[in-house]
Design a protein around this nucleic acid. Structure first.
Length: 592
RNA sequence: GGGGUCGUAGUUCAGUUGGCUAGAACGCCGGCCUGUCACGCCGGAGGUCGCGAGUUCGAGUCUCGUCGGCCCCGCCA
C-alpha cells in the first residue's frame, strides 16, 4: 500500500478540516465522470466522502481515476476543501466539503457485484444471502449491526453494574429428552456416543446457582433443530439470566430496569414502567394469544352468554355443543364493503371457523345478516357489549373454544395491520403471568410442561399435583413486546422431592430422570438456594429495536427457511475418512 | 410432514386465450461531456425463461415431477 496510512474515516471530515491533508481508504461507491472533472464517492463504514479528480491539476491521475470501477478498494491522498459556492450537498453528512485528490492507489480491484451496494434493497433475499459479505456492506446493514453491538455493550454494562457475573457454559453437552430436537455432535473418542448442542444453558445456570454464584448472565448461542420461521433460526442468541434468593418481583424489577436502560442507551427511547401484567387466561380471551400486540386495542369480547343465540340455529348448536361466540369491534368500520368482509372471513376460515358475521352500525340503523334471526333485541345486546357507536362495525364469530379465540386473535392482528392501527414507533411491553404448570397433550396422552420441567409450581397448588395436575399454576412468566415473545422464565424448583414428583407427573420414569437429569437432582441435595431467572431471545429484541420483521436481518450469516447457508453451502457432505474416525456410516438411501 | 406463493438478461421486473426473431429499467462495456452528487446524452454487448419429463404442428405460457427462496400450520419443554 505504498506506506499509505488511513488518516480519517469517510464520515469524519467537515468544514473544520479545511486545508487538511488526508488519506482516505474505502470502497468506490459511485463514479460521476463528467468528461473533465471526475467525482468519486468513497465509502467506508462511517460514511461517504466526495473525492474530486481534476484533469487540469493532474492529467495522469485523472486518467487513472477513469479506470476505477464500483466497489474497488482504493486509497486517496488529497486535501480537504470546501465545495465551491452553492455546491454543498445538504443530504450528505460530509456534503460541505470534498477531497481534492493528488494521489490514488488501487488496493484491490472488484468484480462487478451481483447487485448494487446501496440502501433500498432491490436484490432478492436469496441473492443477498449468497453474497452476504456484499449485502452486509450496505449502510442499512451496517446500521443494524452497529445497533446490535450497542445492545450487547449496554446489556453487559447493565448486568455488570447490578453485580452479575458473565460465565460461559459448555456447547458440547448431554442430550436431554423432551423439548426441541437436539443438534447432535458425534464423539470421536467415544464412538457411538454423541454430544448435544444446548437448546439453552438452563441446567448449567441452575447448577451455577447451586455453586453459589448468586447472579449470573451470559449472551450465548443456543441450538434447536426445528423448522424455521421469520423469528426462528436453528442457532440463535439468548441473553440468559439467573439469580438466587429471589422471587418473581425481583426478576420483574430487574428486567424492567434492563429494558428501560437498553432502549434509552441504544434507541434514546423512554419505555413506560411498570409493565402491564396480563394473566395467561385473560390474554387468550382478550387477544386470542399469549403474545398480544398491545399497541392497539380492539379487544375480543365473549358473547356466548347472550340468550339471543337460541333463535339462531347455527350458533345455538355451537353453543349447545360447548362452543363459544365472540366478536371484535372495528371503530369506524361500518363502511367496509361486503368484499372486504369476505376477505377477512377467509382469515378466520383458515383457523377452522365457519364464518364471520358483520353488524354494521350506521346513521340509518343497524344492518346485519343475523338481524332476522336474533331480532332487534339480540342486536342491541351485542352493540351494548361492545359499546358500539354509529359508524362502527362489529364482527361476530363462533366455534370451539380455543380455536375460536385464536382465530379471533389472528383476525384482530390482520385488521389492525390492514387498518393501519399499529404505531410503529411504539414499544409496549407486558408480562404474561399465571401460566398453568402443565398441559395435557392429547396426542401423547400425558401431561407436558408448559414452560419446562424445572419450573416451580405455585406453593398452594402443589397438593393438586397428584389429583388435578392441569390446575396447578406455574411460577413462570413471559415478556411480550409488540406481539413478540422476547423473553421467558420462571422461579425454579430447588427441592429435589418436588422435582422428582414433577418428573413422575410428566411420566418420566425414575431411571430415565436419573440418567438424564441425575446431576441436577444430585446437586439439589447439596444445599440448593431458591433461584429463578429469565432468558431473552436476543435476536428478536434486536430485530424489534432495528424495526425489522425477520431475525435474519439482525444475524450476520443466517440460514434459510430450509436451514441452509447459501453462502458456504452448509450443511455439506464430509469425507469417508471423517466418517470413519467417528465410526459412522451413512445408509445409501439417506444420501441427498 | 402439510398448505400458500415466487423462480424470465448481471439485477429488479413485464411477457395477453399456447404463435417469441423473448422486452423495459438499472447495472456493465464503448463514445461525447469540466461541478456532479441516482450527473446527462448517444451507441453496444448480454437469455439452457430454475432443472427434468410430458401434452401439442408449436410451450416462458398448459400438466406432472424435482430443486431453491419466502410466508404460514404442525413442530419450537
Amino acid at each position: 500500500m505504498k506506506n499509505y496510512k488511513k488518516t480519517h474515516s469517510c464520515g469524519a471530515l467537515g468544514m473544520k478540516d479545511e486545508g487538511r491533508r488526508v488519506t482516505l481508504m474505502g470502497w468506490v461507491h459511485r463514479i460521476r465522470d463528467l468528461g473533465g472533472v471526475i467525482f468519486v464517492d468513497l465509502r467506508d463504514r462511517e460514511g461517504i466522502t466526495q473525492v474530486v479528480f481534476n484533469p487540469e491539476k493532474d492529467g495522469e491521475l485523472s486518467r487513472r481515476a477513469k479506470g476505477l470501477g464500483g466497489e474497488d478498494v482504493i486509497a486517496v491522498v488529497g486535501s480537504v476543501q470546501p465545495r465551491p459556492g452553492g455546491m454543498a450537498n445538504p443530504q450528505m453528512a460530509t456534503g460541505e466539503i470534498e477531497v481534492i485528490a493528488d494521489d490514488l492507489y488501487v488496493i484491490s480491484k472488484a468484480k462487478t457485484p451481483p447487485f448494487v451496494i446501496e440502501d433500498g434493497v432491490k436484490a432478492t433475499e436469496e441473492l443477498r444471502l449468497k453474497y452476504r459479505y456484499l449485502d452486509l456492506r450496505r449502510p442499512e446493514m451496517q446500521r443494524i449491526f452497529r445497533l446490535r453491538h450497542r445492545l450487547y455493550q449496554s446489556t453487559r454494562r447493565f448486568f455488570d453494574e447490578k453485580g452479575f457475573l458473565e460465565i460461559e457454559t459448555p456447547f458440547l453437552m448431554k442430550s436431554t429428552p423432551e423439548g426441541a430436537r437436539d443438534y447432535l455432535v458425534p464423539s470421536r473418542v467415544h464412538r457411538g456416543r454423541f454430544y448435544a448442542l444446548p437448546q439453552s444453558p438452563q441446567l448449567y445456570k441452575q447448577l451455577l446457582m447451586v455453586a453459589g454464584f448468586e447472579k449470573y448472565f451470559q449472551i450465548v448461542k443456543c441450538f434447536r433443530d426445528e423448522d424455521l420461521r421469520a423469528d426462528r433460526q436453528p442457532e440463535f442468541t439468548q441473553l440468559d439470566v439467573e439469580m438466587s434468593f429471589v422471587d418473581e418481583e425481583d426478576i420483574f424489577d430487574l428486567i424492567e430496569r434492563y429494558i428501560e436502560r437498553v432502549f434509552r442507551e441504544v434507541l434514546n427511547i423512554e419505555i413506560e414502567r411498570p409493565f402491564r401484567r396480563l394473566p395467561y387466561r385473560e390474554s387468550l380471551l382478550t387477544y386470542g394469544t399469549d403474545k398480544p400486540d398491545l399497541r392497539f386495542g380492539m379487544e375480543i369480547r365473549a358473547l356466548t352468554d347472550l340468550d339471543c343465540w337460541k333463535s339462531f340455529e347455527i350458533f345455538r348448536r355451537i353453543v349447545a355443543g360447548g362452543g363459544e361466540v365472540c366478536g371484535l369491534r372495528v371503530d369506524g368500520g361500518a363502511g367496509a364493503s361486503r368484499k372486504q368482509v369476505e376477505r377477512w372471513e377467509e382469515i378466520v376460515k383458515e383457523g377452522g371457523i365457519g364464518g364471520l358475521i358483520p353488524v354494521r352500525i350506521t346513521r340509518e340503523g343497524v344492518t346485519s345478516p343475523i338481524k332476522k334471526h336474533i331480532g332487534d333485541g339480540g342486536i342491541t345486546k351485542i352493540i351494548e357489549r361492545f359499546q358500539g357507536k354509529i359508524g362502527d362495525l362489529i364482527l361476530v364469530l363462533a366455534g370451539e373454544g380455543e380455536g375460536l379465540f385464536s382465530a379471533a386473535g389472528g383476525l384482530r392482528l390482520r385488521l389492525a395491520q390492514h387498518l393501519n392501527l399499529i404505531d410503529p414507533t411504539k414499544f409496549i411491553l407486558a408480562w404474561i403471568i399465571d401460566y398453568p404448570l402443565l398441559t395435557y397433550d392429547n396426542g401423547a396422552k400425558k401431561f407436558v410442561p408448559v414452560h419446562h420441567p424445572f419450573t416451580a409450581p405455585v406453593e398452594e397448588d402443589i397438593h393438586k399435583l397428584g389429583t388435578s395436575p392441569g390446575e396447578v399454576r406455574a411460577r413462570a412468566y413471559d415478556l411480550v413486546l409488540n406481539g413478540q415473545e422476547i423473553a421467558g422464565g420462571s422461579i425454579r424448583l430447588h427441592d429435589r422431592k418436588i422435582q422428582e414428583k414433577i418428573f413422575r407427573v410428566l411420566g418420566i420414569p425414575q431411571g430415565e430422570a436419573k440418567s438424564k437429569f441425575g446431576f441436577l437432582l444430585d446437586a439439589l441435595q447439596y444445599g440448593a438456594p431458591p433461584h429463578g431467572g429469565i432468558a431473552f431471545g436476543f435476536d428478536r429484541l434486536a430485530m424489534i429495536m432495528a424495526g425489522k420483521t425477520s431475525i435474519r436481518e439482525v444475524i450476520a450469516f443466517p440460514k434459510t427457511t430450509a436451514a441452509l447457508s447459501l453462502m458456504d453451502e452448509a450443511p455439506d457432505r464430509v469425507s469417508p475418512a471423517q466418517l470413519k474416525d467417528l465410526g459412522l456410516t451413512i445408509k445409501k438411501k439417506n444420501i441427498t
